[in-house]
Design a protein around this nucleic acid. Sequence first.
DNA 1: GCTGGCACTCCGACCGTGCGAGTGCCAGCA
DNA 2: TGCTGGCACTCGCACGGTCGGAGTGCCAGC
Lengths: 340, 340
Amino acid sequence: MAHDERRLEVLRAIVQDFVSTNDPVGSKALADRHDLGVSPATIRNDMAVLEEQGYITQPHTSAGRVPTDKGYRLFVDRLSAVKPLSVAERRAIERFLDGAVDLHDVLGRTVRLLAQLTRQVAVVQYPTLSRSAVRHLEGVQVAAARLMLVLITDTGRVEQRVVDCPADIDAGAVAELRTLLNSAFSGVKLTDAGGKVPDLLETAPQHLRGLVATVSATLLETLVEPSEDRLVIGGTANLARGSALDFQGTVSPLLEALEEQVVVLRLISEVDAGTVLVRIGEENDHEALTGASLVTVGYGSRDRALGGLGIVGPTRMDYPMNMAAVRAVARYVGQTLAES
Amino acid sequence: MAHDERRLEVLRAIVQDFVSTNDPVGSKALADRHDLGVSPATIRNDMAVLEEQGYITQPHTSAGRVPTDKGYRLFVDRLSAVKPLSVAERRAIERFLDGAVDLHDVLGRTVRLLAQLTRQVAVVQYPTLSRSAVRHLEGVQVAAARLMLVLITDTGRVEQRVVDCPADIDAGAVAELRTLLNSAFSGVKLTDAGGKVPDLLETAPQHLRGLVATVSATLLETLVEPSEDRLVIGGTANLARGSALDFQGTVSPLLEALEEQVVVLRLISEVDAGTVLVRIGEENDHEALTGASLVTVGYGSRDRALGGLGIVGPTRMDYPMNMAAVRAVARYVGQTLAES
DNA sequence: GCTGGCACTCCGACCGTGCGAGTGCCAGCA
DNA sequence: TGCTGGCACTCGCACGGTCGGAGTGCCAGC
């Protein structure tokens, strides 16, 4: 039906206008700003239908219409074309990430970049440990019976743990331990590290058994198991800026949820590299996020996602633009990390 | 003069009441809530004097009085006794920091702890590189002519840099390099590392000269020179919560300044261990901070400060409590770090 | 099935009023 | 000399009523 099609066109127009003006949009304004080819009265009829179907709503009688979460969902799924980034934006991305000196720096720049491009809160996850492999393991003695274990992954993450050893150790033992650990774990994915331990224990010389056992236990417990992943957050000022109206009154529950990290982490890690995932308002389980939308994507090389990144903002956001920005940034980050 | 003394007592009462109620405080309310031994009328006279001296001000005629920055300053310097922490608070501090697995974890917990205790934004600086010494240096080969350099300091910081080498290297060279670097730099303060380089170059075997030169150059350039220090920030939700009124209208410039890091970093690193420093409103140079107060202190062992930590909040804050909290937390952090 | 017209609704801005809190000043008192 | 109670005055703010405008739903006509 050409009927339904126009109705969707009306919905698209409503979303676009509302996103840019933040005012409930009425039939007259719609007819003026878009050439839908019909009169306001007709648009009103369409709007009534859209409202009945749950795509839009009125804040109060005799105000204009506002998209519902369901409306945004339809918009994202069927009504929006991916907005290509401008040349200036592409260049900004390259410039921003260029010259980063280490992983921390790359991710810090990424989060600032994303926040600046989208004017939303940006979130970037450190490369997941569970999907990384060991590049190098290092033991450094910090006390007579205390070792600092340093793990370097192939994604550039560096993690450290202090291990209390069963007995005093000497420099020779440390060197031996290093060799043992690296020959056992080098190149091994962290998820598979557990399987290597029995082997390692067997090959270890008698006098190192206890030490090796303790060290591998710590390694598995604190680094592999809990998959305690990290998050970088930036652009929180964007929350306070315009969005006082978007989030009714207070942004503090949202800020709290962001600092909690755990919540966002769960959401952001459920991503594939390449496919931008959009979660709108009520679609988010967590209460503090029901007024917010998330746009996330995985980054990494095409064969495996290292981690996720994305933005958090009000449901009233420019989805096409943000999706494009998130995707582009993820692509560049993946590239940058692959090079190092 | 008993005269002046009472006037100060009035100022103290005004600060205390205003901090707890957020309402401009009038002469009647003061007489009721504190036994100053005089009538409201007398208090009014004192207030007039205090206002003339610039310690308090009225938002508008016929409202109560509000402390000025100068008033808070006097209060902090002369009118406030350090409020000892409750047993529960002390215990909370211990529990919170106990069980941290590495430096990152310690600082993360610290910032959450501080934010929770003070209900303000908390800021913790990573141990300054320039005041740290090398505990261990490690080179890991990541490509034919590419080395990842990992620096572990005696404060538990781990820093990494990727170095492009002049020529391809092999595993043997890496091992030699490690030995060389560690014997040269181990235990050396980063600020003194530059002086060791000529020596190092001389003792290095011919075939490693180029490599060693490149590596030490990178080491000095990117790790020692810019002293690029890091900051952990937490509790920003506290800004949004009550303080909407404290910061006229918007908190976003403050959030921006916090994300900038550089500003806060400068302020927070000008501290001695042990002495709590308070900066009030206009005393801060940076524009975004003129409506805010900072309470900072250095942490570390008594002989040297590793870094700074503190809180940022509205000028209308409970200074005695916050000063006590900041000091106590710093003490525990210093202790915790000394142990690892 | 679209359109113009029309009556209706309701929010929000505007305005005027009154109240209450708080002040400054003054005369009287210890 | 310094404190006190009294008093007139000021001013912000909460309250309530009014008005206009924007937007709607419905209906009759094309």
